[in-house]
Design a protein around this nucleic acid. Structure first.
Lengths: 207, 207
DNA sequence: CTCTTGGCAGTACGATCGTATTGCATTGCT
DNA sequence: AGCAATGCAATACGATCGTACTGCCAAGAG
């Protein structure tokens, strides 16, 4: 057998280049040639690792999901209790607007691509449902007021976080504003939530 | 002078075809040739009315904004008082997920395009700011509780509505669920808001 | 050592895109 | 009626994209 190479790692390298390109030049700027150049490899190599452009895009959408999930999971590390975890998750989503612009921006592009590609659409649905379930579980475990339905509240919080992330992304409001809004809402549905900058989990984002 | 033709109307026809195409096949499916075919005109005519593809896309983004604004303004017709108006606006945004899929979907595509095009980005910023100002004014005029900041609350409501619209668009939740969530939130910040299906402004959406 | 197999680059090719150009029909003005 | 300008279609062309194909280099097995 010839050279041993980490197949998955090479694929990820190329995909990262594609995502970078997507965030910089938009989805239209993502071509096999440009991706190869951005990744510092040859056009042929991209072909070697991906069956075609569609395959590359699918893999990109998948890795993009994983990237965002990694960001969020990293943010909840050190959170104490379900309420704090919930807060960290929401704030992490909001902060994607500045800390993970590339995945977020690429995500928008892929939403518009999910229209034509059932496979990508399915990926989004599955991912979105999973997130919703987790948030709903956190809401339920946080000891929310009895008059709030966990599922509905999860939709609301997730929607709020996503919308705020877009607002931050477009520069309509600052991260701290968005965080304050999230806290404000959490304070309304949860008995008690660690808020403000006194908790170790609310690290300040360098803007 | 030759034939008299409504220049703006022709441009809009072509743009509508482009938006339809964008929502159906994604942004990648929008080509001059495809747009011409969708609009039932010749490729040359598209050139006649638009200086280039970029011009077409800019005009599309602009008309898209107008389209969404039209939807919302139509929804607030008949609303009584600022609180009811606010509710109608938010619900109208949420309902874009089913009543105006084309503009909403195309909107996502344009967000991802705004990355590379400063002109489109400026258009989005201006539009978003205007909406925020209007909503903030409505919040203030609705007699919100004194402990809520109109500006922040407007960001929250707008973010919530946008996020819910995306959720509806992706099929994660139904319109009625989203409307209920909006009502639930409004009930928390406003002294009294006409809610439920007893008000004429909460027309049922055919799903 | 050498042979084989996979990593990788380079080139070639057909399709398609955006744009420039050309030509004709139609309409309003004089 | 005739001229001029515009609406509109059709074609042509260069650039670029995605993909197929070919060939070389390196590394592990026998």
């Amino acid at each position: 057998m010839p050279k041993k190479v980490d197949h998955a790692a090479r694929r990820e390298e190329i995909v990262q280049a594609a995502l970078r390109l997507c965030a910089r030049d938009g989805l239209a700027g993502v071509t096999i040639g440009q991706v190869a150049e951005e990744a510092g490899v040859s056009k042929g190599l991209v072909q070697h690792y991906f069956a075609g452009k569609a395959d590359l895009l699918r893999a990109s959408a998948q890795i993009l999901r994983a990237e965002i999930e990694r960001h969020v999971r990293e943010a909840v590390r050190g959170a104490r209790g379900p309420a704090d975890t919930l807060r960290c998750v929401l704030i992490a989503i909001v902060e994607l607007g500045v800390t993970a612009v590339v995945p977020l921006l690429a995500g928008h592009a892929f939403v518009s691509m999910a229209v034509a590609d059932p496979e990508i659409r399915a990926l989004y649905r599955a991912g979105g449902d999973a997130v919703h379930r987790e948030i709903a579980a956190l809401v339920a475990a946080s000891g929310a007021a009895p008059n709030v339905d966990a599922g509905a509240e999860a939709h609301a919080l997730l929607g709020l976080a996503r919308g705020l992330a877009d607002g931050v992304l477009l520069g309509e409001l600052g991260v701290d504003d968005a965080v304050a809004i999230v806290d404000h809402h959490l304070r309304r549905i949860l008995p008690e939530v660690a808020t403000g900058s006194d908790t170790p989990s609310s690290r300040r984002v360098s803007e």
